[in-house]
Write a protein that binds this DNA or RNA. Sequence first.
RNA 1: GCGCGGUUAGCUCAGUUGGCAGAGCACUACCUCGACACGGUAGGGGUCACAAGUUCAAGUCUUGUACCGCGCACCA
Length: 1039
Amino acid sequence: MSEIPKAYEPQSVEDKWYDFWLKQNCFTADPARVSPKRPAYSIVIPPPNVTGMLTMGHVLNNTIQDILARKARMDGKEVLWLPGTDHAGIATQTVVEKTLKKAGEIKHRDDLGREKFLERVWAWKEKHGGIIIQQLKKLGASCDWTRERFTMDPEYSRCVQKVFVELYKKGLIYRGKRMVNWDPAAHTALSDEEVEMIEEKGHLWHIKYPFIDDQGKPKADEFVVVATTRPETMLGDEAVAVNPKDPRYTKLVGKKVLLPIQNKPIPIIADELVDPKFGTGCVKVTPSHDPADYEMAVRHKLPLTVVIGPDGRMTAVAGKDFERLDRMKARQLVIEKLTEQGLLVKIEDYVHNVGYSQRSHVPIEPYLSEQWFLKYPSVEKSRACVELGSAGASPAAVGAPADSSEDVANSSEPGKSGRLFAADEASAAAPGAGALPKMRFHPQRWAKVYDHWMGNIKDWCISRQLWWGHRIPVWRKVMKRNDPVMETIDLTVGHTIDKGGLVELSFAPKEGGVSYSRNEYKWIDDEHFELEIITDSPAEIKMLEDFGFTQDPDVLDTWFSSWLWPFATMGWTGDKSQDSNTPTLRAFYPTTDLVTGPDIIFFWVARMIMAGYEFMDDLPFHNVYFTGIIRDKQGRKMSKSLGNSPDPLDLIAKYGADALRFGTMRSAPLGQDILFDEQNVELGRNFCNKLWNACRFRQMMGSAPVSGASAGVPPAEIQGEIDPKLLTSDDKWILLKLDQAIRDITEAFAEYKFSDATATLYRFFWSEYCDWYVEASKAVLVKSVTELNMSNESGATPSNATHLTNRSFNDLTARKANTLAVIDFVLSHTLRLFHPFLPFITEELWHGMGYADDMPENQGGKTIMTAPWPKSLDDDFKGHYGLDDCYLDLAGAKYDLVTLGRNLRREFNIQANKKIKFVLKPAGNIPAHDVEVIKLLLNAEAVELDAGYAPPKGTPMVANSVGELYLPLAGLVDVAAEKARLTKEVAKCEAELEKVQSKLNNPNFAQKVPPNVLQEHQQRLAEWQAKLARAKAALAGLG
RNA sequence: GCGCGGUUAGCUCAGUUGGCAGAGCACUACCUCGACACGGUAGGGGUCACAAGUUCAAGUCUUGUACCGCGCACCA
């Protein structure tokens, strides 16, 4: 840092250090290094969409993860932050399909065919897949890139298949014809979680269904009225239902009405599901297009008439006029026709919720189709392991991702961690938790949401009618009874059952020895049956394909692969019995923390927990940190269509990655949504600049006392560097403030309160260090010898200046050196405290300031990344340097007097740059140094120390415990102005006194209040009384 | 309908076990004084949504109300 630019220039710094970290393998995790002394810390990235772009949401999320990872490294842990990407089935397929359509290459993906289309998706993935990873690197993410994973890597795919087969064998996966949520735009089934309920203003149409006479003709005056929000579905009605207990309709049950337009007689049935209080109490029943109606249809054995096809258009069954018509257009037409026929009784405005596909943003269609479902595994354990916010629960993290401040302060042991070497700690930390380890959510209120969902869990529709994804590992072939193939592969039929039923087969190739799979077959007719084989064995698959079996065309829900992320990325083989876990799994699973958005609590978090228990027999993470959602200044969600989402890369280019990180973290309190404002990033930039310049100032003050060696070394080794005898009250004050900051920040970490940590750092560094300490230090650093001598002769009383009496050049040098040592001590600690938040600038300064040179290679010598996290100052240290808490008050009172003096300047309109003289009448002994500091901070020409000062009438004065500070305005005294000022002051004092006194006067107060509070109030009373007395005296002096 | 957040300075938000209402931005005035104008100094600005209760004491605890946001479940 020989040439120091006036302003921090992040662009030149960031790439340099990121490359350095990569080259030095600073991010790689080695399970072999994990030991009781070096516990593991791990975190898996929520894999972003492989072809996605970095959003502000990613910035927030990954900054937090990076902060946790970097802090853990400084705590001496072996850190694995495992990165990767998700194939994101629907999203990616849709993007590629759209792009190809736009380019005019295809009208529909069928034009290319599955194989060719998939080639294009892979090509797209290759082209765009690296972008988001590069963007994360720009942000400073310290992921172990050697372990980057993709959910469609071959090994990962094998895990997915293995899991499918295993769950199938356990009977948890099954295939069935069900009413599912159908996305007519994407042409696929969706899970319940992928459906968004949106409130819409719609209508309730009341329709007459006439009874029929003996000739099958509609009766003109006898009818029932049904109400519906979806008139187009009436084309597929198969009944009208009433409640069996509804006296209005019981006698109608069994009769028939004529379904209008279709002119089809349909029965009136009775079913409990009908709410007699709603509408007319009569419900039209459309078995194929409404889940509730389907239920009734099954009970009453009604035909399943399909009038809306998978593309959202009406089918031929709907009738000639409707065929191929879009469902919304069909609705119009139905209304028209009913109106013509006089069957529309009324139209009511009606607000109701409509299910929308979260992906395609079109209304979903209940659709009857054959799909694969999963009964969730390990539900009980998964539900029980999450700590619900009960009383007495400690807010501290589980698995110790960050040590409590107590630990850091008083223990030299490396931080403890859950898992490998302290696996029982997590459970021990949860009193009465039984055998189950506990997981904690931050903020905890999400646990309730989770618990509620887990308690009402429904089977998961896992099949998707897409091409991009993990294909379902199921093969089928229609075969004849006595098919020769059966001979060849030596299928042994366990037992025979009736046609149409299912049977278990054991599948054993002739040579024998290959795995057992569970299979099914279905009779199609007397001669033919379809054999279905579920397997993940490559050998079996090969054989099946040779025999002409075809694989199920569907793919699995993306989340069916993501839910394995915490262990499938660590080399899981699925072979639990042989304990074949990889060293990575053994060292880093379960992971310590998960950082994610609450919007995927069901999609991902809950499912990972269940998969963890089911396949690893252990929870996947100890703590889950839920970020807020990033919104724009108006509180709207960030979205591409609104164009309100800034490109983080632009922000990094403009302000620097550190600025973006700091600004984001400062405005992101735990558990609250974040309103993004570029001003936050600007604040971060300004802060980096402040940090930069504070270090620049240090550099400009000359070389460090003893090659700067004092800086980074742990407190015990620093004793030769800072001379306790030479410490000023300012030095002691800032060291005590540093100590407090270390405690506060470490505590904030333990509670995942990153915005608190940044706020504390900001306040400490800017307000305390820069505004007070650095300015005060100039009294030593920028003084010439002569000036010092002069100020001493005029100011200090001899008795208080013992260490100044023999003032010599050497003395001044020693004092300067000591101040620099204190500065180095503070800065080297501060840089480390900042490093998790501001990785780039702190690394640059760490080296530039020479602090790296003084540290052992693996303790910060190579990089600040591995420098030890600052410990708060222990009692020995404080004792040795005389850091008594009284210095907080001593120096504090001095600064307070300065503020009062500045205030005075301001009130008497003395320009900021005008040097004037003050007179200080000290209340007691005051070191010359302190007088010098007061003079400097007041920007005064001089501060005359005069214990017997007799001010001319009307001389403005302020005072506190330090003494009385006068502003002699030689001949310019405006008695009236001072009178006005003091009168105001008196009024204020009296008002405050009134407040305190009324409390103290209350007899109950003295009796019931705790002693410390009482004392506080009495002290406050005394203070205001003193102030009042001074003001009154001054006022009286004016005459 | 059930549940969860939120309501504090013009804006965005902190506010620990109840004990003197805070920060950043914005605003006003002065200041380029040997780190920094991406800066310094000082200042103005609040009926803590409303109502009742508990308490010596309520932004903080209890109950209720209003409004904003979110989630879950829904009867056509």
